[in-house]
Design a protein around this nucleic acid. Structure first.
Lengths: 199, 199
DNA sequence: ACCTGAACACCGTTCAAGT
DNA sequence: ACCTGAACACCGTTCAAGT
């Protein structure tokens, strides 16, 4: 005779984990937008009541910060090569990671602002700048400029993309890739010029 | 005999204007926070029903964009002096304008992202960079880097300030002024190095 | 450990109607 | 021109209770 374990309270399937919740949140961003990412909708997507989510995360803000950290942990920061090229590559990788998930730049921005993010991306980028011989404050300045530029410009790009998706606005006529490339080049040039002055 | 004009529908006072609404919105930001700036609360502050606001603005987003434009129009962009010092001054003025009203950096960021802002601050800053002899794409890159840095870092600073105001978090230990100064110096150095290469 | 039921205190926005 | 009344379709979050 086989023993039957006590059936879970939920009708079908296994219990959820925080990772399940984050995966469902990604799904909503991918197929809809940040505006559609409510706790209630997220719960529906998981086949669960809204308040069940509060078992996994204390509040929505914390859940979004965890999502942001997931995203940022996936950004590749090259370990070898010339330091200035590694800086450019880090920024480019951050941007393309963000562009792969709609509205994710906004999520990262909020997470950084709230202080609930545990990602140390800025410090990692600052370490690359340090390899160029920049003193700590300047290296941190470079990292700050690069990260904020990338996040800020990508927020605009993704927001426009959403608006065009909804047909509320026509194409912006802006070349975001060009804007990003130019602005990034200015910052990296600044870093090089500071490094040269140190020699 | 004095003629009495037909009494307005509202009990006391004169009718409101869009400017009145924006002033009340500023008041809520100044004394509370962006989280408290709901259309319903704004209406209450004006002694009016929530839906009355939709006479003055089509929606909340548009109202916030108008508020952002008001703020940005007040930013002084110096017209004479060395171009690199004018760049630094423009960024510093933008930051101090934002810091004078809690959560205003977030408001500006959203307004830019939504495309509802009519401010041409980035173009104005780009014009200063052009005075340094930079070609248009590079000048625009400089302006983008400066504006996004300033907005992004000020969002973090103001969000931390709110959290400390609410006692939900202790002091961050970060020196935002120092971070801003260093990152700005990197960008302006980059601009100078690009200008020098043009000669 | 993980979830439901039920409720609280809110939102933004629309539409017809009032003066 | 500027506002009210009344309603619609939502939010995030809490708490006790279920299994």
């Amino acid at each position: 005779m086989s023993r039957t374990v006590a059936a879970p309270y939920r009708v079908s399937g296994v219990a959820h984990t925080p990772a399940d919740v984050l995966a469902a949140a990604r799904g909503i961003l991918a197929q809809h937008s940040l505006a559609d990412l409510s706790m209630r909708r997220l719960a529906t997507e998981l086949g669960v009541r809204p308040n069940a989510l509060y078992w996994h995360f204390p509040d929505k803000q914390t859940m979004l910060a965890a999502l942001a950290d997931d995203l940022l942990d996936a950004v590749q920061i090259p370990a070898d090569g010339a330091w200035d090229q590694r800086l450019t590559a880090a920024a480019t990788n951050l941007r393309s990671t963000l562009l792969s998930l709609p509205d994710s730049a906004e999520v990262v921005s909020s997470a950084w602002a709230s202080g609930l993010s545990h990602s140390d991306l800025t410090a990692t980028v600052a370490a690359v700048a340090s390899d160029g011989g920049l003193p700590p404050p300047a290296a941190h300045g470079v990292a700050t400029a690069i990260c904020r530029l990338t996040i800020g410009l990508t927020i605009e790009e993704q927001t426009r993309a959403q608006m065009e998706r909804l047909g509320v606005t026509g194409p912006s006529g802006r070349d975001f890739t060009e804007e990003f490339t130019q602005a990034l080049a200015v910052i990296v040039d600044g870093a090089r010029s500071l490094a040269a002055a140190r020699r």
